[in-house]
């Protein structure tokens, strides 16, 4: 019997977008990353194309991370004291496609670093690595409005990805993004309607839809993973069904969320029945990421180098590119 695979007739594609600008395009990046462009659900080659591999960004902070679990401290050592050194290790040793610089130190509850300090961190990371950069604020809206324009400005022309614009706080970062030729992350908390609203608001300011990446909040495995997973599935179905306001690539912040879980971070002494701590954390982080790959994510922000390596292999295998 000749079995015919039931194929869905999607009417639209996810928009594709490139992060990073090489010299010819007015930047100094030695590599760029293009994501999106899917014309089917994740990795269904029989139905459509996944023209670009999901990209792996490694997160670097502008301040040494507090409470890093042992496997992460062991992996990065002293590099965490200098974002440029840290970023260089991520790219040269661990093969990150991108670096995600999170300006956690700017948060008023942290070191309350100034816009100028943050801009310096951006410049030093741009100087240290050739891959594209994601520049992520501290999450405190007023403070982000203070630091992001300056960070955007010092990276002008580098075609970075800036985050984040929310429904309640989008004007400053969107204006900076447009002025300096960057791409923008819109953020909504596991809510497809708020996500859409945020996209509409930034596009009404004149930012082209093709310059947006969506971030719908991430739940770590065991701690809400399924909410983010289902929101991604719904968003991707909407995109393929022709909703232009939800047709952008999606991003997941995996590392910090996965390592929040006690299953990931408990030392072996605290939970001997769960087995080796490092493998457990790496498993927790990578598996969170793998679930989101199947939900349709395009950019994954990761922490542990072994999780990055394992995720790369997993992407190969889902793309059908196994060695």
């Amino acid at each position: 019997m000749a079995f015919e695979i039931p194929v869905e007739k999607w009417t639209a594609a996810v928009s594709a977008l490139t992060i990073g600008a090489a010299e010819a395009d007015g930047g100094t990046r030695t590599s760029t990353v293009t994501v999106g462009g899917e014309t089917t659900l994740p990795f269904l080659g029989f139905e459509g194309d996944t023209p670009n591999r999901p990209a792996i960004a490694m997160e670097v902070l502008d301040v040494p991370p507090p409470n890093y679990p042992e496997p992460l401290s062991a992996a990065f050592g002293d590099a965490v004291n200098d974002p440029a050194v840290w970023a260089k290790r991520c790219v040269e040793e661990f093969g990150a496609d991108m670096v995600c610089l999170r300006l956690a130190g700017a948060h008023p509850d942290q070191e309350n670093k100034s816009a100028e300090d943050c801009a310096q961190a951006v410049k030093s990371v741009l100087g240290a690595v050739g891959v594209p950069l994601i520049i992520w604020g501290c999450g405190q809206p007023d403070k982000d409005n203070e630091i992001m324009p300056r960070c955007s400005e010092v990276a002008a022309g580098e075609n970075c990805l800036l985050g984040t614009a929310t429904e309640d706080n989008y004007k400053t970062i969107t204006a900076a993004c447009m002025a300096d030729g960057h791409k923008l992350i819109t953020e909504a908390p596991i809510d497809i309607n708020i996500q859409k609203q945020a996209n509409i608001l930034v596009s009404e300011m004149g930012l082209d839809l093709s310059r947006i990446v969506m971030f719908q909040a991430t739940g770590g495995l065991g701690y809400g993973m399924e909410y983010a997973y289902s929101i991604m599935e719904r968003t991707r179905l909407a995109a393929l069904g022709g909703d232009r306001m939800l047709a952008m690539p999606m991003l997941s912040v995996v590392g910090p969320e996965a390592w929040k879980a006690k299953e990931a971070r408990s030392p072996e002494e605290a939970a001997p029945e769960w087995g080796a701590a490092e493998e457990r954390g790496v498993s927790w982080e990578t598996t969170t990421a793998t679930c989101f790959l199947n939900g349709g994510t395009d950019i994954l922000v990761m922490w542990h180098p072994r999780a990055v390596a394992l995720l790369r292999k997993t992407i190969d295998s889902l793309m059908g590119e196994e060695a």
Partner: peptide, 20 residues
């Protein structure tokens, strides 16, 4: 049968099969 593998997989299953 690494314990962390089993813990990871039963948790994935629990999440995916939770009634929304």
């Amino acid at each position: 049968m690494e314990p962390w593998e089993l813990l990871t997989l039963v948790t994935v299953r629990q999440n995916i099969y939770t009634d929304p």
